[in-house]
Design a protein around this nucleic acid. Sequence first.
DNA 1: GAGTAAGTAGACCGGTCGGTATAGTACGCG
DNA 2: CGCGTACTATACCGACCGGTCTACTTACTC
Lengths: 197, 197
Amino acid sequence: MSMSARRDPTTAGTSSREAFVSSTAKLLRRQGYAATGLNEIVARSGAPRGSLYFHFPGGKQELALAAMEHSGEQLRGAIAAVMASPGGAARTVGGLIDALAAGLEASGYRDGCPIATVTLEAAAGSEPVRLTAERVFSSWLSELESALVAEGAEPEAARRRAMLVLAAAEGGLLLARAQRDTAPLTAVRDELQNLLA
Amino acid sequence: MSMSARRDPTTAGTSSREAFVSSTAKLLRRQGYAATGLNEIVARSGAPRGSLYFHFPGGKQELALAAMEHSGEQLRGAIAAVMASPGGAARTVGGLIDALAAGLEASGYRDGCPIATVTLEAAAGSEPVRLTAERVFSSWLSELESALVAEGAEPEAARRRAMLVLAAAEGGLLLARAQRDTAPLTAVRDELQNLLA
DNA sequence: GAGTAAGTAGACCGGTCGGTATAGTACGCG
DNA sequence: CGCGTACTATACCGACCGGTCTACTTACTC
């Protein structure tokens, strides 16, 4: 009864699973949950439709949860890396927002937050989606908070400020997509740096 | 024999049009564009399907644009009213965010920003949607900005701060929906009041 | 009261949706 | 070898999608 871990120790066998997850992550980020069809996911991933339900018997929703975790962990790593770079919190937070702005612009204003869209359209209708979103946001918050604490901020103040930074970044990404311009993000960055200095 | 509120002289002719718009606005706010079906809109509005295409020959998209304008104008009025109340900017901005939090909680965390969800899922794929979102956000920004200018803020600083306030409010609504808790909004409110004091 | 534009009404359409059934293949293991 | 299982592969399903059609009823005008 050996469980998974089959296949060539490297990536064989799970390759189509990963292809599903990353295709889904990309599509969810760009157009959200409801607008993303299984046909589109299957076509992009290159794997056959039947394999999808082998790897994700829970269907579209299970796949979406996996994609959210995947994107969430990726971005958490990026946040941690930026916040660990030298300079004060004002500087690193500025760098973080600049990085988000650069990524958004480079994608033709398509790649915003990979979690926000799904959260807004599906969190109210699906508790698993909501819980996953909550967990991912919380992981990002922890990274920001601990970076602020490491700079000597009071725990309570650090929590509130981390929340403001994340909220402002999310809102900035939203407004930037609506305007097709990074101006909202740079305005947010400047004001945040004022506050944190 | 038809029993559906026939032609009351005042609202004559446009009553079903308005029913379509307000039903659509409510549904877009709660679940976004792609997840909202015409069947659901038609059922809620009480009007027949055929009438929809009489009033909105452009179909779902035209209806969505009208609903976005409708919600946008409504919220613009609310923002203007709150910002005109007595007290400094720190106080009125705090009141605005408290009002958003109260509305969100009262709806069971379903009614967030009526524009954000549609923007994130559809702005990249439909220029009319994007432009409408841009216009609505801009109208809200103007209200915030002029309230800050009326308090003696420099024009440039007022613009940047209005952007931060809107971005933080949008992000706060997003995080509050993910957490099913108003804590993100109160944290954002407190930090914003600090900054504006 | 005939004519006509405005608006109502719901049956109907092809296409796509998420999901399933079932046959086939690759591979570790005895 | 051959057998079981992990996985691939595709054809197929009913439901629902956004959108269209045509017949009808009203309200106003002459």
